[in-house]
């Protein structure tokens, strides 16, 4: 269980308060207007921002300070990949950032690449691949790392509808094989409905507690109504 206990994050004059629990295995959509703190929430959970108040606990324990020590895998919209590393190394880096891999570890990497259908592209560079393939490299790394908490910051916002559905499906596979908990920032209610079973609204300096996704959209909070317009 992820527990944000009376947490406040501050960046300059902006601050965000969060006080909620997320059950293990839940898939949560983080929704809200631009610039209201969705990414701040994710960066805070990941450990890039220190809370100015409160604390974050995972499975009852306080989170370690360094992001690398937290039980977390991250997926951004861009910049997940290092342009000068091969596909293989971009995945392998998830096991050992210094890229010194044992034979069994190499095998693990190959297996992860196989699961996302990129086993033939080991030696390619990210720039040689399509957008969808690049997204799958990121997923292969997440799969490999086996971290129980996955944070996604609009990972598919730039993809077309067909590609996006493909990625959401691949993501679903990854999550079920890791039995992981996931938080995904998204702009798109459709994505949220496909991916998530719960939703958090981030608005007015406050991240609400998760509620079931269908309920969330059937009877949206006022701030969400304004954001969604007639889209529901």
């Amino acid at each position: 269980m992820l527990h944000l206990n009376q947490v406040e994050f501050t960046q300059g004059s902006f601050s965000l308060v969060a006080n909620f629990k997320i059950q293990t295995g839940a898939k949560v959509a983080v929704i809200g207007p631009s610039g209201e703190g969705k990414s701040t929430l994710l960066h805070g959970i990941a450990g890039f921002l220190k809370p100015t108040r409160g604390n974050i606990r995972w499975a009852g324990e306080p989170m370690p300070n360094h992001p690398g020590l937290r039980p977390i895998s991250l997926l951004f919209q861009d910049h997940n990949l290092f342009p000068h590393l091969t596909v293989f190394n971009n995945v392998a880096i998830g096991l050992n950032p210094r890229l010194r891999l044992s034979a069994p570890q190499k095998k693990q990497v190959s297996l992860a690449l196989q699961k996302v259908g990129l086993q033939d592209r080991n030696e390619s560079y990210p720039s040689d691949l399509s957008g969808g393939q690049r997204g799958r490299i990121g997923l292969a790394r997440v799969l490999l790392r086996q971290r129980p908490l996955l944070l996604l910051d609009e990972p598919f916002a730039a993809l077309g509808p067909a590609l996006k559905d493909e990625m959401l499906e691949a993501l679903d596979n990854v999550l079920s094989s890791n039995s992981a908990t996931a938080l995904m920032v998204t702009h798109d209610p459709q994505d949220a409905l496909i991916f998530a079973d719960q939703a958090i609204l981030v608005a007015d300096g406050y991240a609400s507690a998760p509620q079931p996704i269908q309920e969330f959209f059937d009877d949206p909070p006022r701030a969400l109504k304004a954001y969604l317009g007639n889209r529901t």
């Binding site: 890039f48 992001p67 020590l69 977390i72 951004f76 861009d78 950032p97």
Partner: peptide, 15 residues
């Protein structure tokens, strides 16, 4: 350098 790249490296535990 995109800041997210540092975040990814941090979360991977790169020293």
């Amino acid at each position: 350098i995109p800041p997210d790249r540092f975040r990814v490296a941090d979360s991977l535990g790169a020293q």
